[in-house]
């Protein structure tokens, strides 16, 4: 962008000005790079430190001599974390916790998408009594996060015998206003003519849903899947409340239980290896599906 807001008396002035501008632009570019690198450092360094920590033996970390280069204990630490767990009370193997987290995240994501698709389809493509009432009932659940209704929700779970079960972990989290809103928004953009063409072709509502609406929603489903997978994986308060059976422990909750009050004597090497396990799947999903994810996020929340 040229600095052209000054009257130029002659060619020499312009030459100097252009030179100065070019130098300023180069300087600005360098500053931008530095700012971004510092930003990235702040985000990457904690992970780096954790990765490094997970390759040293317990005493190195316990002493506090955290080196900045990898050690030789990676295999040992990760094997122990995977197969046996760690922490002072010999916790749950990461393999178990990761499986639980994976099942929970997948079920939550798939379940939310499934019931949101069908309910949005009903609201958009049909007219029936109480349609808008139902829509608003779903809509206002936006305002009721788990956190504000902890106690009575646990009571419901206890009454239904759903505590300490995978079903209990998943089902209550499946209802989703955001996903329903997203699909409703998208369905409204499907041209009326598709429905009309389908009617003339002889397709009924269920056929139209399967043959036309679902394929057209692919992108939205993929985007939402990424967000909901992470949502399910990262649940904290809910598993903490619902599950006491440690064989159902999810990795996020399990990890903080391993740390406890943060004693120096913890098996920090195993804890750090577990932290890496806990981080890896959702981060991988975000990085590999970045395009879907960004689109999904910015569209869901608007």
């Amino acid at each position: 962008m040229a600095a052209s807001d000054r009257p130029h008396e002659n060619a020499v002035d312009i030459g100097i000005l252009a030179d100065r501008t070019r130098r300023r632009q180069r300087r600005e570019k360098i500053v931008t790079h530095i700012c971004l690198l510092v930003g990235i450092l702040i985000f990457v360094f904690p992970i780096y430190l954790t990765l490094i920590g997970s390759t040293h033996d317990v005493n190195t970390i316990g002493r506090g001599d955290v080196p900045l280069l990898p050690g030789a204990e990676a295999l040992h630490n990760y094997t122990q974390a995977w197969a046996a767990g760690g922490g002072r009370y010999m916790g749950v193997p990461a393999a178990t916790m990761l499986t639980n987290s994976l099942i929970m995240a997948l079920c939550v994501a798939v379940g939310k998408i499934a019931i949101s698709l069908t309910s949005a389809y009903a609201v958009v493509f049909f007219r029936f009594p109480l349609r808008m009432v139902f829509f608003w009932l779903i809509f206002i659940t936006l305002m009721l996060p788990v956190e504000v209704r902890i106690i009575p929700t646990i009571q419901v779970m206890v009454d239904m015998g759903l505590t300490n079960s995978m079903a209990g972990l998943v089902i209550p989290l499946i209802a989703s206003a955001t996903a329903t809103l997203l699909f409703r928004q998208f369905f409204l953009t499907i041209p009326d003519e598709y429905v009309e063409a389908a009617k003339i072709d002889g397709a009924g509502p269920i056929r139209f849903f399967i043959d036309v609406v679902l394929p057209l929603s692919r992108t939205n489903i993929a985007a939402l899947f990424v967000i909901l997978f992470i949502y399910g994986w990262n649940q904290y308060l809910w598993p903490l409340l619902i599950v006491s059976d440690r064989s159902l422990e999810t990795v996020v909750v399990g990890l903080t239980k391993m740390i406890g009050t943060g004693d120096q004597q913890n098996e920090w090497n195993v804890i750090m290896a577990t932290a890496v396990f806990a981080l890896l799947p959702p981060v991988a999903v975000v990085v590999f599906m970045q395009r879907w994810f960004v689109k999904g996020l910015t569209e869901t929340e608007k």
Binding site: Y236, V252, L255
Partner: peptide, 15 residues
């Protein structure tokens, strides 16, 4: 800069 979105709040605390 985008990937930390995937980190659970509790995990962030641990880091």
């Amino acid at each position: 800069l985008i990937w930390p979105y995937a980190v659970a709040p509790a995990i962030a605390a641990v880091l």
